[in-house]
């Protein structure tokens, strides 16, 4: 059985995001990328990406480092 690790996920509000990419810079697991579609403000918003399909391989720990540095409160974090 796989070792039980802390699991988390985030949501990013594309319309609140101003594309500063501080979140992508600080995520220890490199789970945040830049969307290729503009939002209504004209920014390319940040996008949360878990690359593995399987949930048990998901890397987000819900540490909230990304949300803490996000100036625009575009990120919400879930854990458990």
């Amino acid at each position: 059985m796989a070792k039980k690790t802390k699991k988390g996920r985030i949501t990013i509000d594309r319309e609140l995001c101003k594309g500063c990419y501080l979140c992508a810079w600080v995520c220890p697991n490199h789970l945040i990328e830049v969307s290729d579609k503009l939002n209504q403000k004209g920014y390319y918003p940040a996008e949360f990406k878990e690359t593995d399909e399987k949930e048990e391989n998901h890397k987000c720990t819900g540490c909230a480092i990304c949300a803490t540095i996000c100036p625009d409160i575009a990120i919400e974090v879930y854990r458990g």
């Binding site: 988390g8 819900g62 909230a64 949300a67 803490t68 409160i73 990120i75 919400e76 974090v77 879930y78 854990r79 458990g80």
Partner: peptide, 12 residues
């Protein structure tokens, strides 16, 4: 159970 651990604070 999944819990929301980070969100907009009440006084904003």
């Amino acid at each position: 159970m999944e819990k929301k651990v980070f969100q907009r604070p009440k006084y904003l």
